[in-house]
Amino acid sequence: MEKAKGFLFDITKCKLCGACWIADKERNKLPIPEGDFTKDKLSENAFLEMDRRHDRGVRFSCMHCLIPTCASVCPVAAFEKTSIGAVIYHKDRCIGCRYCVFGCPFNVPKYEWDKPLPYVRKCDFCYSRIIDGKQPACAQACPTGALIFGNRDDLILEAHRRIRENSNYVDHIYGEHEVGGTSLLLISDISMYKLGYPGNLSDGAVPSLTWEVLEKIPNVVLIGGTFLAGLWWLTNRRNEVMQAESGKKDNSSDTESGSEGGGK
């Protein structure tokens, strides 16, 4: 099996030239809006957003989580985490419930709100290109080396090296541990939270929150079913006994006058 791939995005190196943005549009055959490309927010027609914040170029796109929430929440398994790291979408399965849009901690999946039969859209890590041995379009297009593509493990080592050698960096690789780790890793000389990335994410994978409940279902069914059946039998038996005793009372008329509870 191939090693899991990843991106390393070095915010200090991005000059906001927009090459990756154009490359994303071309690769995914998306309409190219007029005007400033930094105004183009993530949407069904923008899988990659490059924004200027604190005078730096910031990249927003699918993080390709190692344990993706979208793949976990989808009732029909329309999202798949592939072995090379890409989280891809099988549109022929999708029922359009938008749980992925709702659940994604990075708000990445976008919905075709203006279509009668809408699909979910997001970056697919240029899965077909990686399979062909090429780089994702955006990484290929980046002229400054701000975005590099490679094995995720190597990229983490490289990121640590950069942080070690240059004290300007914040000593944190965003995406190394967040929500269980992501394939897109970011390093910066300013806090990622200030740049608009969710700052409150813990290291635990989000899907474990629901799995902790879901894994109890077989037990609930078995124990609950048995318990209810037991209760039914118990109360049924009690009623039978009560009926039998009252019947006995009726038959033997007034011989027994004391009241008897429905114990047993």
Partner: peptide, 23 residues
């Protein structure tokens, strides 16, 4: 509410036990 209501039966054959929506 569903985007593709005619696929409402999909969860019955396309399983994902990790999904609450599937349950």
């Amino acid at each position: 509410d569903l985007g593709h209501p005619y696929r409402i039966w999909h969860p019955l054959i396309m399983w994902n036990p990790h999904s609450v929506m599937f349950e």
